[in-house]
Design a protein around this nucleic acid. Structure first.
Lengths: 232, 232
DNA sequence: CGCGTTATTGACGTGTTTCAAGATCTGTGG
DNA sequence: CCACAGATCTTGAAACACGTCAATAACGCG
């Protein structure tokens, strides 16, 4: 415990996580604080206009959940990733327009970090790079999940992943987490139908693996969940 | 046409592509030429030790095909991406060990680009960034494919993607491309079984969409292929 | 030419979807 | 505080896409 406890970077999990990814000096922290000092909000279910993070800098999620998804011509939707506090969205400044859509699952708080191409914010740049590498890893895991796991494996693995990511920002513990996604969101994330999600959830509950109820997930046996996890 | 036609960067498609992604100055080109001048080789089917690109710099594919895949405990395999000439593999210097395995599909030629964290190779850095953004886009597309397309849609979309990527390095044209992947590789890339790949291929041939035969793909109707493509 | 790998085909099993109906939850206005 | 409406969840029966098993054919390489 030190004097930082009362400063913004100690209270804001998103900032604490960036600090863990790379050492941030006074300049980095100043830039961060400036951005976080101007938070923006999106109501639940609202889509974030691509223009926001296209032109401006990198998006840093401060509070709430969001998802990134792609849409097919006939309406089929696939969520490619879930965004949690501490996650960043690299502005793909280079390669044409951004792909996918960002939608808030809960009321969302975020801020825009300056694209430090000019500035000497080495620490911040490094943290964002690390975050990008982590995001890529998660994306690959999502590919394996969709390609080679069956429905209950997908659900267990996915919920476990989210639990562990939330744990990193102090938002889950004791095998429990808040879970604001509807079964339709789960379906779109896992490449299934909401009907089947419902059936699989009841099986997982019957087998005493985990329970999803009232916006919360409780794991009854986290090790059993991991039994079908991947070894890359 | 200019005097560059006889220089290495004009003959090597991989280099030409990097030049298209960002303006490379003399210094960038010199660094590139130095790396390309020391090419390395991997025989077909051989796995590339993670250590190679973990410690050293970024891998640049010069010739041949490779794939990146993840393995489950019980042997199930999922290919997360195909690597073609001009593609790069960012050394995730930061976030722990690399995930996935890199395996050569054909005999592979690659080189190692220096991690220019220190050097002032702005152009090269920018080109690699662009390449990384493109790779992420492809990865997201792979997620949508696996999550929401049925078998024939997956195959058509995937083959089309590869065709277009090869086109960018001048390795495909006239609705035709060389295609060194076995049906088992296709299956592992698309989350299906090789048996089912075989059946779907015969349907696509019957419907006069495309033909895969003797290590080549011929599209009979590229527009029809695209009919189920995605609009993000 | 012969052998291992790859491709092909058929019959059958199963996981997931579809369709549809009803129950429960959530928030909102009276 | 209740009543209502829309969203979400739940459940069943039937259809379908894809997997599994297995046997044979074709290919490619030494």
């Amino acid at each position: 415990m030190n004097y930082l406890n009362s400063s913004p970077e100690a209270e804001m999990p998103a900032i604490r996580r960036l600090q863990e990814l790379a050492p941030l000096d006074a300049q980095d922290l100043a830039a961060l604080r400036a951005s976080v000092g101007a938070p923006r909000h999106i109501p639940a279910r609202r889509e974030m206009p691509a223009s926001i993070w296209e032109a401006h800098g990198t998006v840093l999620i401060l509070e709430g959940w969001a998802h990134r998804s792609g849409l097919l011509a006939d309406g089929r939707r696939q969520i490619t990733g879930i965004l949690l506090p501490g996650d960043t969205l690299a502005s793909s400044s280079v390669a044409g327009s951004v792909d996918g859509t960002l939608t808030a699952i809960t009321p969302l708080t975020y801020c825009l970090l300056p694209n430090s191409t000019t500035a000497p914010l080495a620490g911040l740049t490094q943290a964002l790079d690390a975050n990008r590498a982590i995001a890529e890893k998660l994306l690959r895991r999502q590919v394996v999940r969709l390609g080679r796991l069956d429905a209950s494996e997908r659900l267990a693995d996915w919920l476990l992943e989210i639990y562990e990511r939330l744990e990193a920002v102090g938002s889950s513990s004791n095998d429990t987490m808040s879970f604001p996604a509807t079964q339709e969101v789960m379906a779109d994330a896992l490449g299934l139908t909401s009907v089947h999600i419902n059936r699989v959830l009841s099986v997982l509950r019957r087998d005493d693996i985990l329970t999803v109820q009232g916006g919360r997930v409780v794991f009854h046996n986290r090790d059993r969940c991991r039994s079908t996890s991947m070894r890359f």
